[in-house]
Design a protein around this nucleic acid. Structure first.
Lengths: 352, 352
DNA sequence: GACTGGATTTGGATCGTTCCAAATACGCTA
DNA sequence: TAGCGTATTTGGAACGATCCAAATCCAGTC
């Protein structure tokens, strides 16, 4: 029942406490902590014992202040609740952790106002860099104002609006949206579809524009006409997709297939189709984008494009870490390729 | 084309720069920053203008050092890629952000070793408190060693192994696992099932034990026997669930329904059943736990227990913030209730 | 013009660590 | 035992903010 330690119960243990405890200077303890070869072995052992005894925990904030360094990286996501971003985040955190960085999390819920607030708040913590998947409609000027020109930023997934040469110095990691959507469209065409819609997303989102371009490209290459009512916009989530489903069938000819902006939208569309008595995967073909975990488990399983979000997370972290190494090198634009995963949701047209 | 600012391009702007820029002392600038009523209006205006001009960003780390405060809270999760935790995280971050805290993220991927490493690393950043959803098999002694007795910790979702009176001082936010599983089991019994299995999870996980207890309770109350081979363990993810599916049908009588440890496991089991030619929701009834987003969209939609993870995230944040207010008050154990959501996966038994 | 008291402003020490130049210790040789 | 070179150790000034006691300002009063 003896007291193991006579340290005061409150107040944190600092370098000085350790130094006093074993009659060396603070500088020496500091050297021990950082594993410097300068300290003698006897001293090192003594200090290490004392560290253990007193239950010392390193104060990285103080060290960072003195050394003018940072050991954190901010991760700002437009929608953490979306499994695609959750997996991405987990990849980022994993890779950053291995490199000795800690992740400062911020999620914006697609709100530009929150994005501004979150960026401001995170910057005050002095991250070494940031990874940003912008909220819809976020623009370069505001982000630059919040982040400043000194801190490296990696843009993921979406472009910012209003980019100018001055702030185009950011690195990027984007998905090959156009090629992905083209692959999906070509796949549907190969199955015999002629009336193919592009469903979901907003026109002012860069990723949506790119995917739509891939769709258009494939349609034109196959000399297929595109009706205006085959382009239905909706927010990139399930709920709005269900609501907008009807719009697909307002005009003639009605589409027999749809390339969807992403998986969430595709899953929503499925639900909407069921509600109208149309069975997806039998009466109507559709494809998604992202290959979130539930895509393989939906009814029917969803044909989609896989981007392996966890791997993208690791990649994003690595790109940013490289940037920290070489702050002056030219900005990099990385395009991650995507692969078509064919599942049961993409059926041949009923007529064929 | 005039230079707007003559500040050196590199090197961050500090209080002293501002002070020098408008001939006041650092102390005054500091007061302005914190909106103190002490400073005169003319001075305040002058300083604020200078802050804007120079693009000052507050260094919260330095302030925290001096004030011996903290503005961050660590969130350590066993599985961020699981949508349940992703939504939880997004709720936590939202509530913490509103309270002016920043979230330090750490995900452990169910590895005790990583959990130790992550906790250690996060502690060095001096969070005001932590929210921990422990990895499977994590024990109280190790967590206490990593976190210390000073920093408030809120346990979420799972209990730690090896709890002793000394480290039982942590707050807790748990789900009403037992009641939830009992409700699910009673529901299946009411549908006419007599042979009901409990599928998935590991015996040494507290949440699994509790859910299993709820299942047992309902079975016993209905005077239904339980066969040993109706208890199949597996890791709480889809993949392992698919693999273990066969084990359910090794003995007789075979179950006609299963209460699953969670949604991930239930969705995996569905897949496994399909592979054996058994159609879930028609030939076999099952229930999940968590109500992750995909539960409503699976084929068939999954009967499960909803815990509204985003709301739980907010609640966890609020509980921890309250603890920071009153460090001395007695530890709180909060049990969040869950609700049964009946969907098509829970069908009557084939015979009935 | 000296004095008073509230309103502002300020220098200097401090938080816990690291850097750096300088001091001390120690083992050997002469 | 003095002298010397290498191996350790160390005081004190940073880092960028805040705290606090003390200084200064500025009407208004006598």
């Amino acid at each position: 029942m003896a007291m193991e330690s006579n340290a005061p119960v409150h107040r944190k243990i600092t370098l000085s406490d350790i130094a006093a405890g074993c009659n060396v200077s603070r500088a020496t303890v500091s050297l021990v902590l950082r594993g410097s070869p300068l300290v003698g072995k006897r001293t090192r052992a003594r200090v290490e014992e004392e560290l253990r005894q007193q239950g010392y925990v390193y104060n990285r904030a103080a060290a960072n202040l003195r050394r003018r360094t940072s050991s954190s990286i901010a991760l700002v996501l437009n929608d953490l609740a979306n499994p695609f971003f959750a997996e991405f985040a987990s990849g980022v955190d994993e890779a950053l952790g291995e490199a000795g960085y800690v992740t400062l999390l911020g999620s914006t819920g697609e709100s530009i106002a929150r994005e501004q607030a979150v960026l401001g708040s995170l910057m005050e913590h002095g991250p070494a860099g940031l990874i940003l998947s912008p909220a819809e409609g976020s623009d370069a000027a505001r982000v630059l104002a919040a982040v400043g020109a000194q801190t490296p930023l990696l843009l993921f997934n979406r472009e910012l609006g209003g980019e100018t040469p001055e702030n185009a110095h950011w690195d990027r990691l984007m998905l090959d949206n156009q090629r992905g959507a083209r692959l999906a469209t070509e796949h549907l065409i190969a199955l015999g579809h002629r009336h193919i819609a592009f469903f979901g997303g907003h026109r002012d989102s860069s990723s949506c524009r790119e995917r739509h371009a891939g769709y258009t490209e494939a349609m034109q290459a196959a000399k297929l006409p595109i009706e205006p009512h085959w382009r239905v916009e909706c927010a990139p989530n399930r709920l709005d997709a269900v609501a907008q489903c009807g719009a697909l069938f307002f005009g003639t000819p009605a589409p027999t297939a749809a390339v969807c902006y992403n998986d969430a939208v595709a899953l929503g569309l499925m639900l909407g189709l069921y509600q109208r008595g149309v069975q997806p995967g039998r009466d109507f073909a559709l494809t998604g984008f992202d290959d979130i975990a539930e895509a393989a488990l939906s009814a029917p399983p969803l044909t989609t494009l896989t981007a392996t979000p966890r791997a993208r997370g690791r990649q994003a972290a690595e790109l940013l870490l490289q940037r920290l190494q070489t702050p002056q090198s030219a900005p990099r634009r990385t395009i991650a390729s995507v692969q078509l995963v064919v599942r049961a949701s993409s059926c041949p047209p009923p007529a064929a």
